[in-house]
């Protein structure tokens, strides 16, 4: 399965995201922010972490208006899977593909640590459905990662067991109504190798490819 990994000026985690896609059995291909369309045969999309456009104005704001994002929106409208990680989550919220916004962490500090996540919605393939795990251990690393929004009007997928960021209702990740677009602040691509202490991130990359880990 061909998975487009979208890269903006200032993206950082595109290589680790591509590695995680390959490990899950997908074929990662790079999509550049200025491209008018996603690569041919794109079946799923990852928007990786980093500091697109230097986080200027608001994190994800400028990237969300870049050329390639129009085709990401079309892919999402067709029901194609999109996974936004950290800055990619910010981009998807700014693009209006996911509800809410990400604001500066309550403690005004960059938070870099392993976090425990509750899977709030176990009905989707993203985490392996009802047979999948109930919790995930995945690291966060961000400065502007506190989700702000109305949890009653969002499909909340993941919550921090102990929220270090100050998000509304401990929300760590949300999906669109259709469940095909998922954004989260924690970094599943940094939890795919036993050397990094957890392989729980593999569930989300398997979900991206539409299969169980």
């Amino acid at each position: 399965m061909t998975v487009a990994v979208v890269r903006f000026p200032g993206s950082l985690d595109h290589e680790s995201a591509a590695r995680a896609v390959r490990q899950a059995g997908g074929e990662p291909v790079e999509a550049w922010h200025a491209d008018a369309s996603l690569p041919p045969d794109t079946e799923a999309v990852v928007i990786p972490g980093g500091f697109s456009y230097g986080d200027h104005l608001r994190p994800g704001a400028i990237a969300s208006r870049s050329a390639v994002m129009a085709d990401v929106a079309r892919h999402a409208e067709r029901g194609g899977r999109v996974l936004g990680i950290c800055n990619g989550f910010q981009v998807l919220c700014e693009a209006g593909l996911l509800p809410g916004a990400l604001r500066t962490n309550a403690a005004l500090s960059f938070v870099c640590r392993q976090v425990e996540l509750e899977i709030s919605d176990r009905s989707t393939q993203w985490t392996g459905g009802e047979r999948g795990p109930e919790r995930l251990s995945i690291p966060v690393k961000n400065h502007d990662g506190a989700w702000f929004g109305d949890p009653d009007r969002a499909r909340v997928m993941l919550r921090y067991v102990d929220d270090p960021l100050g998000s509304t209702d401990r929300v760590a990740g949300v999906a669109n109504d259709g469940g095909n677009v998922l954004g989260l602040m924690p970094h599943p691509e940094e939890a795919c190798d036993p050397l990094l202490g957890s392989t729980d991130g593999r569930h989300l990359f398997a979900g991206l490819l539409g299969r169980a880990a």
Partner: peptide, 14 residues
Amino acid sequence: MPRQGVLDPQGQAV
């Protein structure tokens, strides 16, 4: 400006 009701940690720090 940050909207009223939205936490402004930068304002709090200042």
